[in-house]
Design a protein around this nucleic acid. Structure first.
Lengths: 100, 100
DNA sequence: GGCGTATATAAGCGCAAGGTTATAAATCGA
DNA sequence: TCGATTTATAACCTTGCGCTTATATACGCC
């Protein structure tokens, strides 16, 4: 699975936003998603690990998950060339409003 | 389907890059993807339409597809708050290198 | 009107993703 | 050491996606 598919899943985006606040143990993340079972969350975390979006370090019997800085950058790199499209569009809109 | 799932598919990212160069007819897009059949491409275009990533206008019996400026922006909006992560990381790395 | 071209939809199929329950593996604490 | 806790994996099931072939729909042209 690649980064785009990893991020396409709403639950995984939720996990990413939780880890953006601060690093958390697997158990805390499970508790943050009461609609899912522990194995389901564990599988999502595995996907995030394997796509390089998060990293883990052991702390006794706990696993502490943290957001990896450069994971999402690959998506940003892809989107960068397209950014001019809506930027140009907004510029044109602004110009139009100023002309009135 | 939402924008993230739409963009998660490699073929659809390919179509987006083709439409970023210039607008094209459905037939041109089909010809650009020789590994796929016409209905397959048509379905991908439908997804891109329904997620607001492209727009179509008829030209006789042809359909001309064009990239919609604000479609990908929704992904960019999502990624924006996370951008500081790798920016800070790069800053820290640069600082570290300068310190040596 | 009738035929060829261009595009979209329908129906069916295989496969992978995400969910569950059950269980393994590792560590902590009494 | 042994039971409880924490996390990961296994096995299985269902659903949805993307592909195909076949067909519908719409338009251009003679």
């Amino acid at each position: 699975m690649d980064v785009f598919e990893a991020v396409a899943e709403p639950t995984r985006r939720h996990l990413i936003s939780l880890l953006a606040e601060r690093e958390r143990t697997a158990g805390e993340l499970v508790d943050s998603l009461p609609s899912l079972t522990q194995p389901a969350v564990s599988r999502h975390l595995r996907v995030l690990r394997e796509t390089g979006l998060v990293e883990v370090r052991p702390d006794g019997q706990r696993r502490i998950y943290a957001l990896k800085p450069d994971g999402l950058q690959r998506i940003d790199d892809w989107i960068t060339p397209y950014r001019r499209f809506w930027r140009d569009h907004l510029d044109a809109l602004q110009q139009h409003l100023e002309d009135e």
